[in-house]
Write a protein that binds this DNA or RNA. Structure first.
Lengths: 405, 405
DNA sequence: AGACGATAGTCAACCTCACTAACAATCATG
DNA sequence: CATGATTGTTAGTGAGGTTGACTATCGTCT
């Protein structure tokens, strides 16, 4: 019912078709004019015209010829990788990671540092150095059009431009940090929740490739979720979608004082710290971590097995909550605990008892660079939006914005 | 990255602009050619052409002239209300409700019946009669293009074309019922979960009008939610999104045997039945209902107040779960319990203690016909899609479907 | 080796669509 | 009653895509 866009002019056709050519080339790698004509259904000369524009705009370039078939050699076109770059950064409590990719999607450099800084300012400085090193290594000068995406714990609220709940990174929520980041990486820098970024990586390279909706649930030091709906990451009205660490869960395995002190949310009872606490309550001693508890359970320690089983029940409840609210096609479990051996099966068994429907469940196959890769994926989309914005009178008008005259 | 659509032809421009004219007329009521030219920015003659097509297609019609200003009388155009109709039906345990609207959105007839039938077949027959009566009253013959939307409890899974979990309507989940419904109302009939339909009504006429995302949570005989994200109702992969009656909740206010017998979900403990059970456990006697318990609490009965307070805590937890997963802009409380006096405030107070962010919360202002009105709203969209489908080569191609050659 | 068929890319004529500009017709108002 | 504002139409122009013909090129078959 809502009036969706603004008037369509003949120009729009050209813009759409150029975008279409570009999309085809991006997904396929390299194509000739004739290929594009066949795929798109457009006339050959139309394709030639459009491709000429794209080449003149620096977005595509010739990439050799294809022979071996009858007829003249076909000139292949590919995305011009130098038209821009994407810098993905992951700021965690223990490590800083980063990678840089060109606009064709190829990763040109990658790095991991131990996080030494303990202040917001220090972290920004370390990230700035990491970013600069990566740019230099990848060969992008200071003039290149770039998009930076920073994966970080916490909730970024775009409406108020604030970062909150970044536990584990002291000083990281200061407004000064955001200002400093913008100064360092440009106004086009984007913040992404780290788990959300991992979900985007899962969508780009992992189990989320062939479904339109899925939930990536990470259980480790903290607990969080990235929710992809209709192929789009759902961030929520305040950026808090997926903060399932706050799922209300009163559980009897920690004593009530603890619950009151730490908050009754899922993260308190079910994160790595919660597992250790539960293990101690169950009578386990010595230096414990979530990993050692799981290892003890695997060795047959009865107390540890009880703790692991209880953990599975908690996560199963969280999964059920996600299903009951959003019903995604697929649940992907990630994080140190989520990726532990046999854990998925335990969770899935409980889910089957509780949930109204049974979604597919998988263990994430991504590793330490998931957040960085997700940032690259998100940044690539944004970069291409900016690169193609100049092409035409606002193709997004159809999506519902407006057309600048 | 995905190749979104198919090639754009000049035709598409016309299609988009005709759609734009139509949208403007639908939202505004009636407009002249000159008005449309001003609003849209298109040239006057372009508007004339497009409007001519729309009129020839029977979608708009002249609706008098406007005088009083200098110049010739402007011919106003309005949506042709006879171009189609929408039949909205609500099948509940106690009542059958229905209404019929023309394609301009005007409700032409409305009716409510007590549900007498106790079998699937009987209910279909009653609905068929209700629908036929409404059509006759509204003056739509058997040939008119129509869209029927049936709001029903339960989960409709479009992938398998099955209706499940329709508790309270014995026999309603039979495949034969679906077949019979299709035979009666045509293949274009659509099933919508009743709470989802109420959410759509809230979006069309209620508090959901000016937000892009909100959750309509209904607490009454049952518990359910309709989740609107990005302006679109989110049904989920299996149609189970919003089934928050299945939120895992072990609560100490009902004894464990009950929980085991009835299932531990939110619906068991927090629906009207759960309230009565809790009231009895608290020591209240006599013929009880959720309503009488709430009335007793309002009169100051301590036991009843305890029950109401516990209910508020349960619903607050559900709200927190919704926020933690989806973080909508707004939470709307509906249903007999949800709309009870002062209940929202109690819930909101608890939510503030638990949730990571605080969404706005409102009590639904809609009444008994919410489901029917939601079905009409949903049906109107579908009807217009079908009406305008003939106009042009598939305007939705841009949204990502395809273009039939 | 040479003929043949398939393919790549371009050119010219035509169709659709929107825009500009001019124009006739109409109505309120001073 | 003259003037100005406004509606709606007509003719000409430019952008964009399409069809069909045409040239040039390459592999393959005879």
């Amino acid at each position: 019912m809502a009036v969706s866009g603004s008037a369509a002019r003949p120009r729009l056709i050209r813009a759409l078709n150029e975008q279409l050519m570009l999309d085809h080339i991006r997904t396929t790698g390299s194509l000739s004019r004739a290929d594009l004509a066949r795929i798109s259904g457009l006339a050959k000369n139309t394709v030639s015209l459009a491709l000429g524009n794209l080449e003149r705009a620096g977005l595509v370039r010739p990439a050799g010829v294809r022979t071996g078939v009858p007829g003249p050699a076909a000139v292949l076109y590919e995305v011009n990788p130098d038209s821009g770059f994407v810098l993905g950064l992951d700021v965690g409590g223990q490590y800083l990671r980063g990678a840089i990719a060109d606009s064709a999607g190829a990763v040109r450099a990658r790095a991991t540092l131990r996080a030494r800084a303990r202040t917001g300012h220090g972290r920004v400085a370390a990230l700035a150095k990491l970013g600069a090193d990566l740019r230099a290594e990848a060969g992008f000068g200071p003039g290149a059009l770039g998009q930076t995406v920073l994966g970080s714990p916490g909730i970024y609220d775009p409406a108020h431009d604030t970062l909150t709940l970044a536990a584990g990174l002291p000083g990281w929520g200061e407004p000064a940090v955001l200002r400093e980041l913008r100064r360092t990486f440009g106004t086009e820098m984007v913040l992404e929740n780290d788990i959300d970024a991992a979900a985007l990586a899962e969508q780009a390279h992992g189990h989320g490739r062939d479904v339109t909706s899925f939930a990536f649930i990470s259980v480790g030091t903290g607990i969080g979720m990235g929710l992809v709906i209709d192929g789009k990451l759902h961030r929520g009205a305040h950026g808090a979608a997926g903060e399932i660490g706050f799922l209300p869960m009163d559980d009897d395995r920690v004593d009530l004082d603890d619950v009151r002190r730490l908050g009754g949310g899922l993260e308190t009872v079910a994160s790595a710290g919660g597992i250790v606490r539960a293990a101690r309550l169950a009578g386990m001693h010595g230096p414990l971590s979530a990993r050692t508890v799981f290892e003890a359970a695997a060795r047959g320690d009865a107390r540890a097995r009880g703790v692991v089983e209880a953990e599975a029940v908690l996560i199963a409840r969280a999964v059920c909550a996600v299903i009951a609210v959003a019903d995604p096609h697929l649940i992907v479990l990630g994080g140190g605990v989520g990726q532990a051996a046999d854990f998925l099966e335990r969770v899935a068994a409980r889910v089957r008892e509780l949930a109204p429907v049974e979604p597919a469940m998988r263990v994430s196959a991504l590793g330490n660079d998931a957040v960085v890769d997700g940032c690259l994926a998100a940044g690539a989309d944004r970069l291409w939006e900016r690169l193609t914005a100049g092409l035409a009178p606002d193709t997004t008008a159809i999506g519902g914005i407006r057309e600048p005259v």
